[in-house]
Structure formats: C-alpha cells, structure tokens
Design a protein around this nucleic acid. Sequence first.
DNA 1: AAAGGTTCCGAAAAGGTTTTCGTTATTTTT
DNA 2: AAAAATAACGAAAACCTTTTCGGAACCTTT
Lengths: 345, 345
Amino acid sequence: MKKIALKDIAANFGVSISTVSKAVNDSHEISKELKEKIQKYAKEHHYRPNHVALSLLKKSTKTIGVIVPNILNYFFTQVFYGIEKTANSRGYSIISCISDESYLKELKTVELLSTGTVEGLILSLSEETQAKGNVEHLQNLIENQIPLVMFDRVSEEVDCDKVVVDDFEAGYKTTKHLLKTGCKRIAIVSAIYNSSVGKLRVDGYKKALKENGVEYDERLIVEVRKNDDLQLLISLLLDNKEIDAIIALDEITAVDTLNILKSKEIEVPKEISIVGFTNGRLSKYVSPALTMVSQHGQYIGEQAANILIDRIEKEGDMPYTTKLVKTSLIERDSTKKILGNSSSY
Amino acid sequence: MKKIALKDIAANFGVSISTVSKAVNDSHEISKELKEKIQKYAKEHHYRPNHVALSLLKKSTKTIGVIVPNILNYFFTQVFYGIEKTANSRGYSIISCISDESYLKELKTVELLSTGTVEGLILSLSEETQAKGNVEHLQNLIENQIPLVMFDRVSEEVDCDKVVVDDFEAGYKTTKHLLKTGCKRIAIVSAIYNSSVGKLRVDGYKKALKENGVEYDERLIVEVRKNDDLQLLISLLLDNKEIDAIIALDEITAVDTLNILKSKEIEVPKEISIVGFTNGRLSKYVSPALTMVSQHGQYIGEQAANILIDRIEKEGDMPYTTKLVKTSLIERDSTKKILGNSSSY
DNA sequence: AAAGGTTCCGAAAAGGTTTTCGTTATTTTT
DNA sequence: AAAAATAACGAAAACCTTTTCGGAACCTTT
C-alpha cells in the first residue's frame, strides 16, 4: 500500500481533487453521502495530507531549528529539553543539530536550515566560533529575516534576542556566600578560559572581594587547558597560599578538585570549601555532596523557545531583548554554613 | 530585504523563471554573460533554493525523525548523539521529539511525522507504551511504507529493523564475573521492573548461577518502585542473607546503593561488590569508582541511523534485521579482582 | 412564471523549484 | 544558397494541497 494522495482518491471516485480535499476536511459544500464515502475510503487507506505540500502552501513549516554545541553536556541537554517541551506545546517541531564545537559544522547547519526549512533558529555558539569571532553566518540570518535567539554563548555582534545566564551576578553571589561562611582566600579553577562566561564570573568574584575589603590576588585564578594536569595545578595552587575555598567553573572540574583534595587528605569543607558551576548529575552523588550554582538550563530553553515563537508569530517588529536568567546557589555539604545571623542574604 | 525567490530574480532581469533556475545552477544552456549577471545578483541577495519546494519536487526531505523517551537519561543522550552524527554525515537532518515516557505524546508525534515530513523514523518505546502494549501507531507506520528502526525498548509485535542491547548476555557476563571474583550471594536491585530489558538481565543472571552450581534465591531480587525507600529495601535485603555482591540495573540506583552501604560502614568491595548498569557520568567520580556495564549508546545510535538510511536509500525490500549489541564490563574499584588465573574469561 | 436562493461540484491559482520539450535565431556545414 | 546543427531562452508539467470563484441544477419565494 503506497503513499496515497488526494489525486488517487479523486481518481477512485471519478471526482475532482478539490472535491476530495473538501470532503476530507468535512466541508459543507460536499453532500453528505459523498463525504461519507470519501472519508471512509481515506481512513481505510490511511490518508494524511502531505505536510511538505502544506508547508509550501501556507509558507509555514511550524518547525524551528536548534543548534547546540555539545549535547553530552548536561546543561545543554537540559536547555534542549526545555526547548522541545515548550516548542511542542506551542505546536512546533524542532529540527536539531549538534555543532560539536565546530565552526564549520555550525556554519553548514545554519546555511542548511536557512532555506525555508525552519521558521526560526535557537543557537548557542560553538567554542571554535567563539574563538574565531566569526559570526557572519548569523548576521546573514538576520538580514534574511529569519528570527534567531541565541542563548548562553552569545555574540555581541549579532543583533537578536538573547537568553543568558547572569554569570556576573553568579560569580558575585557565590563569592559573597563563601565570604559569609568565613572564607577569605578564595581560588578559582577555570577550564573555560576563552569564554565570555568565565570572564563574567571572575568579574563578579572581584566585585564581591572588593565590597568585602578582601584583596584580589591574581595567583588564585587557575586556568586549566586541555591537556593540563589538574592534580599538579591544584598542588601548586595550594602551596603556601592558605586557600580556604575553591570555585570550580564547571562540574567535572569541581568533582575532580574534590577528589584531589580528598586524596591529599584535606577535609572538605572544614579546611577548604568547594563550590562548582552547573548543577548536573554528579554533584549530588559525591561525598561530601557539592554545593553548586544552578543555571536553570530547562528554564533557559523554555524562555528561548517562547521568545522565538513569539517573534515568529507576532506581526511587526518588536525590539530585541536580552533576558538575564539568575542562577541559584544550591547548598550541599562542600561549603560551611553561614556564620551568625545574616539577614541580608 | 525579504526572502527572495527565482520569481523575483526573473522579474528583475525580465527573463523567465526557468532561465534563472538554469543560471543559478550554472547550466550550459544559458549564455555566459546572463549567467554571470544572474549569479552575481543571486549571491548579493543571498538567494538559496527553497528547501520545502525542493522536498515536494524530489519527494525527499532528507530528514529522519527521532523519538526518545527521555533525553535527560544519559544513555538516550548518547544514542541521540550517535544518530545525529551519522545522519548528518550521510546528509540527513534529524527532527527530534521527546515522548517524555508518555504514550499519547509518542502517538501524536508518530502521527505528525508520518505525513511526509520525514523519510524514516528511529524510536525507543515510551514506558507507558510498553506498559500498555499498544503499538498500533507503529504498525500503521509500517503499512504506510515508512521505514522504522526501533532501539533498546522495542516491541516484538512490530515488524521492523531493531537495534538492541544484548541484555541477556550482559546479565550473564556480569554475574559470571562476580562469581569469578569469589562472590556467591549476588543480589539484584531493579528499578525497571516492567521492562523486557530488566527481565533479560535477570535471565542471564540465572543462567550464570546455574552454570556455576549456585542456587537461585528469589529473595535476592529486589524491585524498587517509584516512591519506595531504597534505604529500607537494602536494609531488608542485607538482613541475614550474607549478600556479597549487588547488581544495580541502573546508574542512579548503583550510586545510591553505594552510598547506603557506605553509610552502614560496609566496605566496598571488600564486604560487598557493586556492579551497575549504564556507564554514565556518575560512576567514574564516586569513590570507590563503580564497575559498570557499558551499553555503548553512541554506537547503538550510529547503527540505528545507518540501518535506517540504508533502507531509505536502497531499492527493493531487504529482510528486517535485529542487531544485538554486546555490552562491555568496565572494571573499576567497586568489584574485587578475579582470583587466580582465569584464562577462559 | 420570473426572480432569487441554495446545493453541490469543478476549474484554477498559488506556493517554489527543476526539468523536459519547444521555439526561435544564429552559426556551421555541404 | 540551402540544409543542418547549435546556442539561448521560454512554456509547461510535476510535486500536493487549500481556497476562491464560477457554474449548473434544483428549490423557494413573489
């Protein structure tokens, strides 16, 4: 039984295509008897209107594109889930691509999707694209009137809607919290050295230090590059610097750091507190459970999808917005409790 | 600058649409001068052939659908990644849906996609669909000649290509390994009580026991339901049963079990060994690191995509195949080393 | 009986593209 | 110079659907 079209039904009954179309759509223009015959036949042959033809006719595919750099990263998985959920609830399908942190794949995908397949795009920049700073493909998108929402890893050079984590506030809030628990010498271990995100968090950290009269010490910021030995870096960091807290800018680094400290028989949080970014699946299950900064990935996805679909469906041009999503500090056992009664927090 | 079509270019130069089409496709039928003018204009205006129109014309969307029950599950994320990777490398886009373990959403999605949007479908059954056993929507798919590949959570009632984990062999292999390390009283903790997958693993477990002359004891199989207290169940399990190994059928349960044993000051693996299923992100980072059964999610995704695309592209009907993917036991510190010199393993 | 209304169906356009087949006009061959 | 070949372009079909408009037949009203 091959795919069946209106044409085939029309031929079967010796009527015109328009008649069949109206019949299956239950139009009052068609007589009851004919409608029933046609509908019965259509049902028996599993007739379903061709979606591609409808898209062409209506000039609307009800589909949005999503490009994430790395789906194995739990944060992006969460965002993706949020996008799918709300897009689906608003009647949109999503066609998804993984740029795999590659500029070329991102470029190819954007070009592929910008040919009428999708009505809009949600994207987070690949690492390579961020490093290169080449966002021409996205500017072309805007020129071609294809709505774009960027999230998390965004570019200032692209004029579009954005949803970003308030990383500055997150760094500030985290540092302030550590200070309140009595920590003074707070180090940062970062594996995301060339991202705007990392810079913002450090800026927030600096602001909190300054506000609390703690001097900023450059030596406390550690950058971990791809093939670096974290163990060694931590040992160097600990050397004569009286560290009492470590902020790790991603979950894996946080857990690794914890394990290294444990292997050195340093007590967490008694001697050194640890806070990690990205509340993923690991932090809850290690011991002591890690205090983490949650970025609310799913919420970000929901927001991005809603903003995009609003723009697709609304007439006229609204101004572009940048939504700043606040983080939450999820306190577990790797940090000390706040001393005394701090009402301002 | 609005979306531009061949029509617009044709109007601009006062030529026909066919001429423009041939010009942008660099046909020899068009004079060099005209071609150059048109191509320049097309490039300047970012002309790209409309993908929807092409799909309609060619009767091929170069798109496949993927339906997974739960993207936050790392196994499915891995499969998804594998699918995207190979589909992309073979020139296909993927349109993805998350059934959220719901029968209704799965049904709706299958119906939506089976209208010409995708050329084939890759699917893993939702929990609810498995429980209900209602797979009519998938049988309709086959009737409508839409290629389908099921993976992991499959149904015997659907006649299609399948890619499944060899769960029987996994249960067998794992149990055999534990026996070789000297364990005798091996318990199983399962949170996937009504899945074929869980049943197969237990069957493999039984076979290994029998082969090694160890008697099967029903009381060692623990089923954890949604709101059950794992702590309590483990306590009951441990009571007077001289357990020396526990197999957990998912990663979270494995980690939870480990933590419960640690809180009871039971030494792992000295007193009790632990093996978990699904080698995710947690097991490596807890201490002791957990020995896990890897299901090779990404490989499964790659296989599924290749099988599907082969079927889409090949003429004539090949027989349906079921690909059995073997698991690997990843030994870490939660199990004892094998005693003596076992050459047969 | 004439005018108006209703019922039921078909023709055709529109959406964008490729491709086949004409149709000219020019050039080459005999 | 006539015939044949080539070059350069256009018309139209095809993919599938919805929708507008038009038309014929019948029915109702004055």
